[in-house]
Computed example of a mutant assay.
Amino acid sequence: MMATVHTTRPITPLLRSAVGRLRFSLRPLQAFGGRLRYLLPRPRRFSGCYPDYQTALAAARAAGAMPGYDHAEVAPVSFDRMCRVAPWDYPVLFWLQRLSGDIRTLVDAGGHMGTKYLAFRAQLATSWPDRWIVYDVPAIVEAGRQRAAAEGLTGLHFVTDLREAGPADLLLGSGLLQYLDIPVSQLLLRMVALPPHLILNKVAFRKGAPHVTLERIGPALVPYQMRNEEAFLDEITALGYELVDRWSIPSLSHVIDTHPEMGASESAGFYFRLREARGRGDAPD
């Protein structure tokens, strides 16, 4: 005997509904030309947790990725976005304008291809330093020199050795410290003389012991450091600097995708000055 199927709805509408759901589920596949790889999970931005920079760098090599930042392929990643003023840049602009009478030479450490030079030109048009010098790794500096020459940016200079920059009135490090492979005090001591003014922005911290993760930047895995803030401040003040200003950047808090139990990082910016260096831009005591 043939079984009878009882339904309160016609078969055709049911089929149409099922096909409609199937079409909806296939839309991402159709939208990307049928390439299934676009449906796979996006690569993790942060992965791994390591005790120091070199261990993290070795892990990047072991993973078969391009290790570190010193690669021409990394230079164009997010370049246009980094050339725009972001909300966390405004405290930096405030202090650059306030200190403009004291700043003739500015060293932009970790300044990429001059992204802050390009972002800040309009805001600092009337208080621009005489010399803006970018210090970065060789591959990024070479790409920056080529771009600056092509665009006629004669006021932008590049060095791979801080001694080549000569004496500077201010060192700016915006997003530098996460990727720095040496202590920040060692970086400053490589200069001809300690700069009277120091602005460090987008510094990543965590509660407790510091650690290093790996950040995916284009084709590379780059060690990304999360410091202990108390130890960081001790390191800077031991060089003779005093803290003048600090600002928080909540939107740059990050969680390591593979280690969420470590908690979110914090991000902050700072303006320091040498204790004996006081100019008309300094805040009153």
Rank of each mutant, 00 (worst) to 15 (best):
V192H: 06
R216G: 01
R190L: 04
T126I: 02
L170A: 00
L172S: 00
V134I: 13
G144I: 10
H157N: 05
F232Y: 15
G218E: 13
H112M: 07
P138Q: 08
F120R: 04
R163Q: 14
D245N: 05
W247T: 00
G173H: 03
S248G: 02
G144F: 09
P195V: 05
R227A: 15
A125K: 12
T154Q: 14
H157G: 01
G166W: 02
I217T: 12
R227V: 05
L221P: 02
V134G: 04
L187R: 09
G114N: 09
W247K: 01
A150C: 00
Q225Y: 09
P183H: 11
R206A: 10
V203I: 15
Y135R: 03
V192L: 08
Q186S: 09
M226R: 14
L176Q: 04
D234S: 08
T126F: 07
R147K: 12
R246Q: 14
P196N: 07
K207V: 12
T237I: 05
H157R: 11
V244E: 14
H197E: 13
L187T: 03
I182W: 06
K202W: 04
D161G: 01
S248V: 14
S127C: 14
L180K: 07
A122L: 09
S127I: 01
P129Q: 10
I133Q: 02
T126K: 07
V137S: 01
K207P: 02
F232T: 03
V141G: 04
R145E: 15
I140F: 11
E215L: 04
A204R: 09
A148W: 11
S248K: 11
I199G: 00
A204S: 13
S248C: 03
R121H: 05
N228C: 15
G208W: 12
E215C: 04
Q123E: 15
E142M: 13
Q225I: 03
V134C: 07
D234W: 02
S185T: 15
F120I: 07
R163A: 15
D169A: 03
D161H: 10
A209V: 06
L124S: 01
A143I: 05
A149Q: 15
I182A: 11
L239C: 07
L243D: 05
V244M: 15
V212Q: 08
L188V: 06
K116T: 13
I217M: 14
Q186R: 10
F120E: 00
A122Y: 06
N228I: 06
P195Y: 08
V192F: 03
Y117A: 04
A119L: 05
L189K: 13
T213I: 08
G175Q: 09
L118T: 08
T154G: 08
L221V: 07
P167W: 14
V212I: 12
Y135A: 13
N201S: 14
V244S: 03
V212C: 12
A209D: 14
P196R: 07
L198C: 00
